[in-house]
Design a protein around this nucleic acid. Structure first.
Length: 950
DNA sequence: CCACCTAGGCGG
DNA sequence: TTAAGCCGCCTAGGTGG
């Protein structure tokens, strides 16, 4: 099945606003990032010119005449709306501001502190100014619309005033904000919770809403519509629903399953011999068999009246992608991947058909049984509807192949009522190119002697491995449009511009030579789960919640193949800057920036707890606003067979290889220099023998399954992640209105000065830093005894709380005991069990022990600490005392190192930034910087990714 | 030179 | 209502030993 990548769809005629935006943001491709910005810049410039030209009648006024304006960051009205407003009212719109001096106004809703500083000598106004000026048809005094308040003239605000300041800022941009309180009251349960309790929760929710980013705020409103909410990650059933309906997910899983199934079938039945190695030098006969418009054909296979009409398979009716369309529809220019609305405009009589995944599977089964029955040397699964056959030892000529192909076509037709096409060539590349020519419902072969000339007329995009990116690169750099043009380019030039491997590949395939010949299946090397549709979060907790479900899904898939992982990768798609909150596609990702981060595990693991904890770290380190998350993925790599199921024989496992080992790395597998060297030999050098792994156990211990997601696990998670506010109340046994009545303004100064112990500890840890960093370098690497000891020391926490160093070995700090006592008996036991187990592996980066909670001024919950910090800020309007800053920084450092709660640290620093956002007190900014610095250092010591803030 | 990381691309 | 943009593999190119 030819899955068409979505191409840019250029709006015809006079583009209106939405079209401009659609095109610039949506049609470039899903995460096509190459020179996106370059193209966007050019494009926008053209669009501006076009806007100016076509202004004649659309010009509304000239109130902005002579003024040049630029837009920065998220705005409401949107970037493009503002742009039109400015231009239509006589202003000059400036793009990508280079020289600030030439600018009259900068339009923005909010500036980061560093940006604010950068723009302090300019007129920076909120978008509301533009709106109000146009509404009043005159220039209003801009000073009433400042986005940045000058530091000097700003009077100091009291704590409560500061809160009041924030609210109107939001409501000014979102007129719906008055609804918020009503809606939240409706949304909260009022039955089994006392009335005061409910009120407190209500207070708490609007309170946290005040600090939502614009994108999170947007999502909050979006998700208030129950039907929409149901279609997003907020729905606990989302993953299942999504995967059941996702064609791409089906394609992937089908392929994986088929590969395994066919391999087993052909190996055990003896119908297909394992590929003959000596035949490398003999001439091959390769056949590529593929259904014509598979989904559409299957859906209409028993409805002959539909087969004559234009038919497309899609979910929706508007901005839904066409997965497959028949040849009748293609006559109208309809293509796979096109939006239904576009297709409808090309062909109003287009018939839309639903997916029928079960039917695709059963048709495919018939298809593969025909192929398996066809005598062959090798059968390779390409996808549900597509396969390669090596017929080398069964035929003498292309004519023989063509006869077999016709026979396959006939049999498939009889059994499925669908057509396949067949391409034949002496290698995979030529067979594929022949297939293209054969379609629809035909057979075609390319002889070697004709290949070179045949290729010349093809567009470079037709070559496998050459997609939109590489073909546009070829065109931009060498003006090469056809394979003939490509043939003329010097090999070394290709290698220089496209890299040694890919350049050579291009050189070869342009001549019809296939470097990647058909080969035996290699074991899977990674397992991943991705969701890039319907992802909408408001709070950090939403993201964490979804990540838990995603991780569970990953673990389910891993357990089906009996593997554990050494490396975990988190992938987040972040809404691109300036991309609209609502993408064109309903609940789609829109234009995004992909971000990835990975973690290594010294011993292979499949433990939910261990992995989840790392995922939290990875997620935090990516520092994406929850409102901007558009997609999330987890990938398990460096996977190893899990030793628990050693007795079960696995067909896919290479023979003679030990059960537990890292699968071949890229460099081992691909580099042709290593030819002739067996994997095992390579392994022998790199893999320590089992006796070498005395310290770091290569077998992960398995936790009692009851402990997965048990309350004991929940209890050790940061409070902000523990779901609802109600549960937070229970767990912490605290009441939100118990705000410290009134604290002495000098209380911070009277605190005990830093304790000598801790200074010593800090020093010690810094000295260990280098050794520690080394230990994570490679899985299964032996860790020196000396390091272990030091790490143990480092992990011995709570020196401040428990000055008695001899208690260190006890492993159960008082804080934990308190937590433990509150838990049910059996869970207590499970926790104790975990702790017992963890004693065997103290060097483990991720520990099973609940981390100690470090208190500060007898406070430990984020909300209490925020309260404390707010009072501190309020009471020190000119800036904090430097001792207090040190004290606070040290505390945060300990939260990183000991409590290991990066969420808390991030929340507190952000809170401080938030508090200082209005007044912008320089001394406070310096204090924040110092705090961040301390936290980064702590992250370094802990060997976790640094915290990124704004 | 190696091992590791992240980004990007491709196909079905 | 809309809609269901996955997933495994490869290569490049940077960093740090």
């Amino acid at each position: 099945m030819a899955l068409q990548r979505k191409k840019r769809e250029h709006p015809t005629g006079n583009a209106d606003f939405n079209e401009l935006e659609d095109d610039a943001y949506e049609s470039v491709g899903f995460h096509d990032h190459g020179d996106y910005f370059e193209r966007k810049k050019r494009k926008l410039q053209n669009q501006n010119a076009a806007l100016y030209r076509g202004m004649g009648e659309s010009s509304v006024s000239n109130i902005f005449e002579g003024l040049s304006m630029a837009i920065n960051g998220y705005t409401n009205p949107s970037y493009s709306e503002l742009r039109t407003m400015i231009i239509q009212n006589g202003g000059t719109f400036v793009q990508y501001v280079g020289k600030k001096t030439s600018l009259s106004f900068l339009i923005c809703s909010f500036l980061t502190p560093s940006k604010a500083n950068q723009w302090k000598h300019h007129k920076v106004v909120t978008p509301q100014w533009i709106v109000d000026c146009i509404r009043n048809q005159k220039l209003l005094p801009w000073t009433n619309y400042r986005a940045v308040h000058p530091v000097a003239s700003q009077s100091l605000l009291s704590f409560s005033d500061a809160f009041k300041e924030v609210v109107p800022q939001i409501s000014e941009q979102h007129h719906e904000s008055s609804e918020v309180e009503d809606q939240t009251q409706d949304a909260l349960p009022s039955n089994d919770v006392g009335q005061t309790e409910t009120k407190k929760m209500n207070d708490e929710l609007p309170n946290s809403l005040k600090f939502l980013s614009r994108s999170a705020w947007h999502n909050y409103h979006l998700l208030n519509t129950p039907n929409i909410r149901k279609s997003t990650t907020q729905n606990p059933e989302f993953l299942q629903k999504f995967f059941n309906s996702s064609r791409l997910h089906h394609l992937s899983t089908w392929k994986t399953a088929l590969k395994e199934e066919i391999q087993i079938m052909t190996t055990s039945s003896g119908l297909t011999s394992v590929r003959n190695v000596k035949s490398i030098n003999t001439k091959h006969f390769i056949m590529h068999v593929d259904f014509d418009c598979f989904f559409a054909a299957v859906s209409t296979r028993n409805a002959s009246e539909l087969q004559l009409k234009p038919v497309a398979v899609a979910h929706g009716i508007k901005n839904s992608e066409i997965a497959s369309c028949n040849y009748e529809a293609r006559k109208y220019g309809i293509k796979n991947g096109m939006f239904v609305s576009t297709a409808k405009s090309l062909c109003p009589s287009l018939v839309l058909v639903d997916y029928d995944f079960d039917a695709y599977e059963s048709v495919s089964r018939e298809f593969y049984s025909v192929l398996v029955d066809t005598p062959n040397d090798y059968l390779k699964v390409i996808s549900i509807d597509e396969a390669l056959l090596d017929l080398t030892t069964h035929v003498q000529s292309f004519e023989d192949c063509a006869n077999i192909a016709e026979s396959i076509r006939k049999r498939v037709r009889t059994r499925t009522n669908c057509d396949v096409s067949v391409g034949i060539g002496s290698n995979v590349l030529l067979a594929r190119l022949a297939l293209r020519k054969a379609k629809p419902h035909n057979v075609f072969y390319i002889r070697d002697e004709d290949a070179y000339v045949y290729l010349q007329s093809l567009p470079v995009q037709d070559l496998p491995g050459v997609g939109p990116s590489q073909s546009s690169k070829l065109f931009d750099l060498y003006n090469a449009k056809t394979v003939g043009d490509l043939q003329k380019i010097n090999k070394h030039i290709l290698q220089k511009t496209f890299g040694a491997n890919y350049g050579l590949h291009l050189y070869n395939i342009s001549r019809g030579a296939d470097t990647n010949n058909i080969s035996n299946e290699t074991p899977r090397r990674s397992i991943s789960v991705d969701v890039n549709w319907g992802v909408r979060f408001v709070f950090l907790e939403d993201a964490m919640d979804f990540l838990k479900r995603l991780l569970q899904e990953l673990l389910n898939r891993m357990s089906k193949c009996d593997v554990a992982l050494h490396q975990l990768q988190l992938r987040v798609l972040k809404r691109a800057e300036n991309a609209p909150f609502n993408p064109i596609k309903y609940l789609g990702a829109g234009e995004v920036t992909p971000l990835t981060k990975s973690a290594m595990f010294t011993s292979a693991t499949k433990s939910f707890d261990i992995l989840y904890r790392q995922i939290v770290n990875l997620y935090i380190s990516l520092d994406v606003d929850p409102g901007d998350v558009r997609g999330i993925g987890l990938q398990a790599s460096k996977i190893v067979k899990d030793s628990n199921n050693e007795q079960s024989f696995n067909f896919n496992a290479p023979l003679k290889t030990p059960q537990k080992k890292i699968l071949p790395g890229l460099s081992n597998r691909q580099h042709t220099q290593g030819q002739g060297q067996e994997f095992d030999e390579i392994y022998e050098k790199k893999e320590p023998s089992p006796t070498d792994t005395t310290f770091v156990p290569s077998t992960p211990y398995n936790l009692p399954s009851a402990s997965q997601m048990s309350p004991s696990v929940l209890a050790q998670l940061p409070q902000s992640m523990q779901g609802s506010i109600k549960r937070q109340l229970e767990v912490q046994n605290k009441k939100f209105d118990e705000i410290p009545s009134k604290l002495d303004p000098l209380f911070l100064k009277e605190l005990p000065t830093p304790i000598r112990n801790e200074v010593k500890e800090d020093h010690e840890i810094t000295m260990n830093k280098r050794i520690k960093l080394k230990t994570h370098a490679r899985p299964n690497e032996k860790v020196p005894e000396e390091t272990v000891e030091k790490i143990q020391q480092q992990d011995a926490f709570q020196k401040m709380l428990r000055p008695n160093k001899k208690e260190k070995k006890k492993n159960l700090p008082q804080v934990d005991l308190q937590v433990l006592e509150e838990l049910p008996k059996e869970i207590q036991e499970s926790v104790l069990e975990e702790i017992k187990l963890s004693r065997y592996d103290l060097a483990r980066e991720v520990k099973m022990m609940p981390n100690p909670v470090v208190t500060f001024q007898q406070k430990q919950s984020i909300d209490d600490l925020r309260e404390l910090v707010a009072i501190w800020y309020e009471k020190s309007p000119r800036g904090p005392n430097s001792h207090d800053v040190e004290y606070f920084s040290r505390y945060l450092g300990r939260v990183v190192r000991e409590e290991r709660n990066l969420l808390k640290v991030q929340a507190l620093i952000r809170w401080l930034q938030q508090l200082n956002r209005r007044n912008k007190v320089g001394a406070w900014q310096m204090a924040i910087d110092r705090t961040v610095e301390a936290v980064q250092e702590a992250c370094l010591i802990r060997n976790t990714p640094p915290l990124v803030l704004l």
